[in-house]
Computed example of a mutant assay.
Amino acid sequence: MRRHPRSGPVPHRGAGGAAGFTLIEALAAFAIVAVLSLVVQRGLVQSRLGLAAVEDRLAAERVARSLLAEPVRPSDVASGGRAGILDGYRFAIRLAVLDLPLPEAERAAQGACPPTAGPCDPGRAGDPAPPARWQPLRQDIEVATLRGPSVTVETIRLGQVPSTDARAR
């Protein structure tokens, strides 16, 4: 450093420039900060949208699980299913009887008593309509989400269907 005759040391300056940032450097710094803030903002918005979609799907899955936990109603079997709204989510349950050969069903169709039952007389005259029989059912549950694809559950359950004798009457 060289000394100024009146005040003391004077900072060294470049080729006639003042110390500090130029206007171009300041504008470039602001542009970089603006671009970075846009990237961060976009990331935050995307993460919030992703979180909302996950929460929506989880709520739809809870609705599907609660519908799956309900017992199969004979009226639903007769009508092939039902639809409605539960907790703000639209759902549809479809039921279809599976025609699988079951040993008890075959014996009952032939008029024999099941082996686990006590003494019975299949031809008693005073019997009311034959009881409903258990049948495997295909159950499809579809719950529509507010964002994205719907939640679908497919399973096989046992349900009571009217016996073939009761249908013939």
Rank of each mutant, 00 (worst) to 15 (best):
E142H: 00
V40G: 11
Y89R: 05
S150A: 15
F91A: 01
E104C: 00
W134E: 12
I32N: 01
A19Y: 10
G111A: 03
A129H: 04
A34N: 05
E104F: 01
T116H: 11
H4K: 06
A132L: 02
S7M: 07
F21C: 02
Y89K: 04
A19M: 10
I93D: 06
R2G: 12
E104R: 09
D99G: 08
G43S: 13
L23C: 03
E25R: 09
P131H: 04
T152W: 04
R62E: 08
T164E: 15
R62N: 05
A117R: 13
L137D: 05
I85E: 14
S7E: 11
A83W: 00
V161K: 04
H12P: 13
T145I: 05
A78Q: 14
G14I: 02
R73T: 06
V97N: 01
Y89H: 11
Q110F: 04
L68T: 07
I93W: 03
A59Q: 13
A132F: 07
V10P: 00
E104W: 07
D165H: 11
A69D: 15
A26K: 14
V77P: 05
A112Q: 12
L67K: 03
G8C: 12
V54E: 14
I141Q: 02
G17H: 12
P71E: 15
E106W: 02
Q46M: 09
G17M: 11
R133T: 13
L158I: 09
R124H: 08
L67I: 08
L36P: 00
L49C: 03
P136Y: 04
G8D: 07
W134M: 07
L98Y: 01
G81M: 05
A52Q: 13
L100D: 12
A28Q: 10
F30L: 15
D165Q: 14
P149C: 03
L67N: 03
A60D: 07
E70W: 04
V153F: 11
Q110G: 09
A26P: 07
V39A: 15
A144T: 09
L95I: 04
R57T: 14
R42T: 15
L36N: 04
R2K: 15
P122N: 10
H4I: 06
R82G: 09
C120N: 05
A132N: 13
G88F: 06
L49A: 13
P74W: 01
G14E: 12
